[in-house]
Amino acid sequence: MPTSDAQRKAAELQRQLAALTGHDQATVKPYGKHLLVQMQRDDTVDTIARLTEVGRNIYTSAFRSHTGRWEPLPGTGNLAETTDLVVSLLAPYFNPDI
């Protein structure tokens, strides 16, 4: 079961994603030290990105490629900075109409 801190950070990330994308179809699931960013599409849920806390409020991010491997994205930062980076780099994946 995720800690209350992980759940709080997941909720904060989900709010930031909604603000940046303009919709609420992106959800966040805490998974250990990771925050998994998922998109609801019809009857499926696609995990498209992962943010990992590597220091006190310092995050890295990775993209789930078509092979299922996690490919690191450039840059690190606090949760807001990393969220902005992920949304910028992966904008097509956040399109709810795909």
Rank of each mutant, 00 (worst) to 15 (best):
T76V: 11
V87A: 06
S61A: 15
R50I: 09
T47M: 06
L73C: 06
A80H: 14
A91Y: 00
D24N: 14
G77K: 04
M39N: 04
H66Y: 05
G77H: 07
L85N: 13
M39C: 08
G68C: 02
R56L: 11
R56K: 12
E53D: 04
L85A: 13
T47K: 01
R69S: 06
W70L: 14
D84K: 15
T44I: 05
W70R: 04
T76G: 12
Q38N: 09
A62P: 00
D84Y: 02
Q25C: 09
Q38P: 00
A62H: 01
E81V: 03
D46R: 03
L79A: 15
L36A: 00
K33C: 01
V37I: 15
D24Y: 02
Y31V: 08
S88Q: 08
S61C: 07
D84S: 13
E53T: 03
P72K: 06
G75C: 10
E53M: 11
T76Y: 11
T83M: 11
D46H: 07
D43N: 08
V45C: 02
R41K: 06
T82G: 07
H34Q: 15
K29S: 03
L79Y: 12
A80C: 11
D84I: 02
R56S: 13
E71V: 15
H66S: 08
G75I: 02
N57C: 07
T76H: 11
D46E: 05
D42M: 08
T52L: 07
R69N: 08
L73N: 04
T67F: 04
I48R: 02
A49I: 12
Q38T: 01
E81R: 13
T47Y: 03
V54E: 00
I58Q: 15
L73M: 14
E53P: 01
T47S: 02
A49L: 11
F63Q: 03
L79P: 12
V54A: 05
E71R: 10
E71S: 07
E81T: 06
K29M: 05
P74T: 13
G32F: 05
R69A: 10
S61P: 04
G32D: 10
R56I: 13
Q38G: 02
A26N: 01
A91W: 01
E81L: 04
I48Y: 04
L79C: 14
G77R: 10
T83R: 11
L79Q: 15
V28F: 13
Y59A: 06
H66M: 02
G75H: 10
L51C: 13
H66F: 01
R50Q: 12
T82H: 09
R64D: 00
Q38V: 00
G32A: 06
Q40E: 11
D24E: 15
T27Y: 07
E71W: 04
G55V: 07
K33D: 06
G55K: 09
V87H: 03
D43M: 08
S88N: 07
D43I: 10
L90V: 09
L90F: 03
V87P: 02
E81S: 07
A91S: 14
D24C: 05
A62N: 01
A26K: 08
T67M: 03
T27S: 13
A26G: 07
A91N: 08
L79G: 15
G75L: 05
A26L: 03
H66T: 14
V54W: 00
R41F: 06
H34S: 12
L73T: 03
E71D: 14
